[in-house]
Nucleic acid binder design. Structure first.
Length: 167
DNA sequence: GTTGAGCGTT
């Protein structure tokens, strides 16, 4: 029987819920610090990264916010989508990608190929992807944000047993 | 401080 499972990269219209939110339409003057301040209202943040243009060093106007827990990411997506930030209406959605691509080494990393070398494409291609490396931002995770210890961290409704789905 | 769709290679 054929698998009905979708490809994990997903489609762009309906990204599956996950801990990483893409935030689009940012002002060029919004900083990662600003984003952390806003989004930590919904739960602990693992990381925030704005995407910068390589030459100009300016923000490209979008960013990724990594939550520790998917449920907080869901909540943040609902509440922060359409919010105004630094004079711009921001769009918030689950990210379809998980992390920046690993830079390609630029040299052939596969086995030496003698003669029949259809293998080469296989090895070359694999290097640029990296969408599934779930451990990537584990090692980049910083110490918890100071913001949600100063009272802004929303308490769970009715304090029921709550098992966070971590990512 | 461009006026702006976008899913990333510090």
């Amino acid at each position: 029987p054929m698998s009905t499972r979708r490809r994990h990269v997903g489609n762009r219209a309906n990204p599956d819920p996950n801990c990483c939110l893409g935030v689009f339409g940012l002002s060029l003057y919004t900083t990662e610090r600003d984003l952390r301040e806003v989004f930590s209202k919904y739960g602990p943040i693992a990381d925030v990264s704005i995407v910068y243009d390589q030459q100009s060093r300016r923000s490209r106007g979008f960013a990724f916010v990594y939550f520790e827990n998917v449920d907080d990411a869901k909540e943040a997506k609902e509440r922060a989508n359409g919010m105004e930030l630094d004079g711009r209406r921001i769009r918030v959605d689950f990210s379809i990608t998980k992390r920046p691509h690993t830079p390609t080494p630029g040299i052939y990393m596969g086995r030496p190929t003698y003669g029949s070398s259809r293998r080469r494409d296989y090895y070359d291609r694999g290097y640029d992807r990296g969408y599934d490396d779930r451990d990537y931002y584990r090692i980049r995770r910083r110490s918890p944000s100071p913001y949600y210890s100063r009272g802004g961290y929303r308490s769970r409704s009715r304090s029921q047993s709550y098992s966070p789905r971590r990512c």
